[in-house]
């Protein structure tokens, strides 16, 4: 384990001074709660000792090779890989392993997560060469024989790395917004104050509604990598979700088809199936993109 950085002297100085001042004033609870340098070192050492013991006691350990990068710290602005030995337990996910490494070795290890159950879409990572959700990937599944060895964890490819495993999602969200991912028809049928959907239509769009905006598909797509304006699989899937929803009127459907058939829309897709391979919610993305291509053709075909 390495944090790759030695703490600068003057920072230590000011920090303990500040703590001292706050203590003397005896008014800032926050200041009082903060540990001084010796306490931090002791806590770190204790945590490392605990980690060592846990690793020694474990039947199996897994070696995490984690991408590290922090442009704001001179010592860390050169990307590198750190190794963390983590005790393996049955049922452990890649996210669990990362959290263990963060909590026991290096609290500066940065990654996004929230729900831990494949719902929030925060922790799409590049694990052993594939876009996966950390919380939905069993460490045991990464080894052929179920006994984990080494796991390589990197930030999503084709996105700007902010720090360690965190990438900038802004562009992905922009593409999602550009297909107007919300229901727009206000009209309700006579005598009803709700918009009912037929079972068949619900089935048709069922899978497309499952997207959790994780960005795995966009990251896996070779076309999106080379064309920043390409809507990308997730946005097109969103467009499918509404264009195929019969409750929206014809004008709206046409408006939606106009969006997806523009130059950087569905026709960029080369059916490489990369997105479909990686989608953690098993959405048949390529199938939906192809369906929209056919809708776009049908809309424009005129036999007179």
């Amino acid at each position: 384990m390495s944090t790759g950085i030695t703490r600068p002297e003057e920072e230590e100085e000011t920090e303990s001074q500040a703590v001292g001042a706050a203590r003397a004033a005896g008014e800032s609870a926050y200041g009082q709660a903060r540990m001084n340098e010796t306490e931090i070192d002791a806590a770190n050492e204790a945590s490392q000792r605990r980690a060592r013991r846990a690793v020694e006691d474990a039947d199996h350990t897994v070696e995490l090779k984690v991408f590290r990068y922090d442009p704001e710290v001179p010592e860390k602005e050169k990307p590198r890989f750190d190794s963390f030995t983590v005790p393996f337990a049955k049922g452990m996910t890649v996210l669990d392993a990362l959290m263990w490494a963060r909590d026991h070795y290096d609290s500066s290890l940065t990654f996004r997560h929230s729900c831990r159950q494949a719902v929030c879409g925060s922790d799409a990572l590049f694990v052993d060469g594939k876009q996966r959700l950390g919380c939905k990937t069993q460490v045991a599944d990464l080894a052929d024989d179920g006994v984990p060895g080494e796991v390589r964890i990197e930030p999503l490819p084709h996105a700007e790395v902010v720090k360690d495993l965190v990438v900038d999602m802004e562009h992905f969200y922009d593409q999602m917004e550009s297909v107007e991912p919300y229901f727009q028809d206000e009209d309700t049928p006579d005598g009803l104050n709700e918009q009912r959907q037929s079972r068949e239509n619900r089935e048709k769009i069922k899978m497309s509604t499952r997207c959790i905006w994780c960005g795995a598909c966009m990251s896996s797509c070779n076309i999106a990598a080379g064309d920043n304006e390409y809507l990308g699989p997730a946005a097109i899937n969103k467009a499918y979700r509404f264009a195929m929803d019969e409750r929206e009127g014809e004008d709206l459907t046409e408006h939606r088809l106009n969006i997806i058939e523009q130059e950087h829309g569905v026709w960029r897709c080369q059916t490489q199936f990369s997105c479909t391979e990686v989608c953690p919610k098993d959405i048949p993305l390529t199938e939906h993109i192809q369906a929209l291509k056919r809708e776009a053709v049908k809309k424009n075909l005129k036999f007179w």
Partner: peptide, 26 residues
Amino acid sequence: MSQSYDRGLVEDFGRWTEFSAGMWAW
């Protein structure tokens, strides 16, 4: 906006061993 951060061979064709069927077909 999204300039892909250059991670050398981390990306693209350097990963050919990890390509799946659809990509090879293409």
